[in-house]
Structures are given as structure tokens and as C-alpha cells.
Deep mutational scan, measured.
Amino acid sequence: KKRTSIEVSVKGVLETHFLKCPKPAAQEISSLADSLQLEKEVVRVWFCNRRQKEKR
């Protein structure tokens, strides 16, 4: 599977969401993915990776 490069503008939206809610529910991930025209899996993994980054 190819890596998905995420646009800077999209990263901004994801970051804003992350600050409000670092662990979104599946439904939130779905609606976020739809509005950003990304796959749900890509958004889910982004949040996973972002949470791990917080720990470091």
C-alpha cells in the first residue's frame, strides 16, 4: 500500500481536531475523512501516529 501524503491545509484541520479531541470515535473519524476526502483508515492512522508523537 502506498503512503498517503497529507496536504499542509489538511494537516492543519487534523491538528485542530486533535487538540480538541485526541481520541475521536469511529463516527467522528468517518465524518472527518469524508469532509477531507481521505480514506477513514488514513485518518485513523494519522490520529494513532499523532498520539504516539505526543508520548515522545
Rank of each mutant, 00 (worst) to 15 (best):
K55T: 07
V45A: 13
S5Q: 15
L32V: 04
K20C: 03
A33S: 06
I6Q: 11
P22K: 08
S9Y: 10
A26Q: 07
W46E: 01
R3F: 09
N49H: 06
P24G: 01
E54I: 04
K11Q: 14
K20P: 02
L32P: 10
K40S: 10
S5R: 12
E15D: 00
W46I: 04
T16W: 08
E15C: 00
S9M: 07
R3I: 13
L32S: 03
E28Y: 07
S31A: 12
S30P: 04
Q52F: 00
A25S: 15
S9E: 15
E28C: 05
H17V: 12
K23I: 07
K40Q: 11
C21P: 06
V45Y: 07
I6Y: 04
A26K: 07
A25C: 14
V43T: 00
K20L: 06
S9C: 12
F47Y: 05
E28L: 08
Q27S: 14
L36D: 09
S30K: 12
E28F: 03
G12S: 15
K40M: 09
W46M: 00
G12H: 14
P22R: 07
V8P: 15
K53V: 09
I29L: 07
I6P: 10
V42F: 08
S31N: 14
N49E: 13
C21K: 03
P24E: 03
E28K: 03
T16A: 14
E7H: 13
K53A: 11
R56W: 07
E54D: 09
S35Y: 07
T4Y: 09
R3P: 13
R3V: 10
R56D: 05
I29M: 06
L36Y: 08
S35W: 03
E15K: 03
Q37P: 01
R56N: 15
E15M: 01
V42S: 07
E28S: 03
A25I: 08
A26C: 10
K2G: 07
I29V: 03
K55W: 06
L14Q: 00
N49R: 09
K2V: 11
I29D: 03
F47L: 01
L32M: 07
V43C: 02
L36E: 02
K1D: 10
P24H: 04
S9D: 15
W46C: 09
K53T: 07
V8S: 15
W46T: 03
S35H: 15
Q27I: 06
Q27E: 14
V45S: 13
K40P: 15
K55N: 10
R44E: 14
F47N: 13
E7C: 14
V10D: 14
P24C: 00
A33N: 00
L19D: 07
F18Y: 10
L19H: 12
K55G: 07
S31I: 12
F18P: 00
E7P: 15
S5I: 11
T16C: 08
K20T: 11
T4A: 11
R50M: 03
C48M: 12
V10W: 09
V8K: 15
R44T: 08
C48G: 05
N49M: 08
C21V: 02
E41W: 01
F18I: 01
W46Q: 07
E41L: 00
A26M: 13
A26R: 10
V13P: 00
S30Y: 06
L14R: 02
K20F: 08
S30C: 07
V13H: 07
K2C: 02
I6E: 08
S35Q: 14
C48H: 13
D34R: 12
K2D: 08
C48A: 12
P24A: 06
V45I: 05
W46H: 04
Q27C: 10
E54P: 01
E39I: 06
A26T: 12
C21F: 04
Q52G: 08
S30D: 13
L38W: 01
E54W: 01
S31E: 11
K11H: 10
S35M: 13
C21Q: 15
V42Y: 07
S5L: 12
F47D: 05
K40A: 12
L38F: 02
V8W: 12
R51M: 09
L14N: 05
V43I: 05
E28N: 11
F47W: 02
E7Q: 12
V10A: 15
E15W: 00
L19R: 09
C48I: 14
K53W: 01
K23E: 14
S31D: 15
P22V: 06
R50Q: 01
A26N: 12
S31H: 14
F47Q: 01
V43Q: 05
H17I: 05
K2I: 08
E15P: 04
K1W: 13
Q37D: 13
S35L: 11
V42E: 14
I29Q: 05
K55E: 09
S9H: 15
D34K: 13
E54F: 01
R44W: 04
K23W: 13
L32E: 04
K53R: 10
A25G: 15
Q37E: 14
S9I: 01
C48K: 15
E15A: 05
F18M: 01
K2L: 11
N49A: 07
R3H: 09
L32W: 04
V42C: 10
S5G: 15
K20I: 05
P22W: 10
Q37V: 00
Q37G: 14
K40D: 08
K11N: 12
K20W: 01
E39M: 06
R51L: 08
L32K: 00
K1E: 12
R50I: 00
S5K: 14
V42A: 05
G12D: 15
S31W: 06
C21G: 03
V43K: 00
R51H: 02
T16I: 07
Q52A: 14
E15G: 01
E54L: 02
L38D: 00
L14P: 01
P22E: 03
V43R: 03
K2A: 07
Q52D: 14
K53F: 12
I6F: 07
E15V: 03
L14D: 02
I29P: 00
D34F: 05
W46N: 02
V13D: 05
Q52T: 08
V8A: 15
E28A: 04
Q37A: 07
K1C: 08
K11C: 09
V42N: 02
Q27A: 13
P22N: 11
S5V: 15
V42K: 05
A26D: 15
K2W: 02
A26Y: 09
S9W: 11
I6T: 10
W46R: 00
S35N: 06
R50G: 02
K55F: 10
Q27T: 08
S5C: 14
A33C: 03
E54H: 01
E41F: 01
R50H: 00
V13N: 03
V13Q: 14
Q52L: 12
C48T: 10
R3G: 13
Q52W: 04
E41N: 10
L32N: 02
V8Y: 14
V45D: 15
C48S: 13
R44C: 02
S31R: 15
K40F: 14
K55M: 09
Q27W: 08
A25E: 13
C48V: 13
F18D: 02
R51D: 01
S30W: 06
S5Y: 09
F47R: 04
K55D: 09
E39Q: 05
R44F: 00
E15H: 01
K23H: 14
K23Y: 15
V8R: 15
V8T: 15
K2H: 09
R56H: 09
R44M: 05
K23R: 13
T4P: 10
K11M: 14
T4C: 09
E54Y: 06
S5T: 14
T16P: 01
K55I: 04
K11D: 13
K2R: 09
E7L: 10
K2Y: 10
K20M: 02
S5P: 10
I6H: 11
L36S: 03
Q37F: 04
E39W: 03
V10T: 10
D34E: 10
Q27K: 10
V42G: 04
